[in-house]
């Protein structure tokens, strides 16, 4: 039995220490996903709490057909997009590129010289949520295409396409002046 299975079994048996351990183990993943999409700190915390409440609620139906982290990320992904949908901030797939180009123009260029890495983060934050989340899952959380497909429910081709388009948009915004600081800074 893996440590994940053991942990889940203990949580379902009502072990409060195990429940706390599950939250502590996965809170960084959930917060990274939620905070990428929801900028208001209090709302982000509320949504993150709701994510864990859903996790505990649906844990008995988790059959270990995927990694626990993939399953948890899929709940966080759906709740983050639901939040945007409720706030009418979710951009339709057809408009993603158009909105991304317009939003990237708004990025704070004063950061270019000061903190280049921050500038790239600022650029990422300007991307539509769907691009942002796929980029984050692939590069920062290091999920593979198959896992991102499970998390987002998008076909693998769409995941690859989103990654390609998002990186292309970002790369075009990185000027040759910024690259050295990023590489060696």
């Amino acid at each position: 039995m893996t440590s994940e299975e053991e942990l889940v079994k203990k949580v379902m048996a009502g072990d409060s220490r195990a429940s706390k351990q599950l939250i502590v183990d996965y809170q960084a993943l959930v917060f990274h996903m939620i905070a990428r999409v929801i900028k208001n700190k209090e709302d982000a915390e509320d949504v993150a709490q709701e994510v864990f409440i859903k996790i505990f609620h649906y844990l008995p139906s988790f059959k270990f057909q995927s990694k626990l982290s993939t399953w948890i990320a899929s709940i966080a992904y759906r709740m983050a997009l639901n939040y945007l949908d409720k706030k009418r901030l979710l951009i339709s797939d057809k408009e993603l590129d158009q909105v991304a180009v317009a939003q990237l123009e708004k990025a704070d260029t004063s950061l270019i010289k000061a903190e280049t890495k921050e500038y790239v983060q600022e650029l990422i934050d300007q991307l539509p949520a769907q691009y942002r989340l796929v980029l984050m899952l692939y590069h920062m959380e290091e999920f593979d295409y198959q896992e991102i497909q499970e998390i987002t429910g998008m076909p693998e081709g769409t995941v690859k396409n989103y990654l390609f388009r998002a990186r292309k948009l970002l790369k075009e915004k990185i000027s040759p002046n910024t690259k050295n600081t990023l590489l060696y800074g």
């Binding site: 280049t116 980029l135 590069h139 790369k171 690259k179 590489l183």
Partner: peptide
């Protein structure tokens, strides 16, 4: 270099 720069920046968790 530009690609590497982007890749490095993306790999960094805020």
């Amino acid at each position: 270099a530009r690609y590497l720069a982007l890749y490095n920046a993306l790999a960094e968790k805020p």
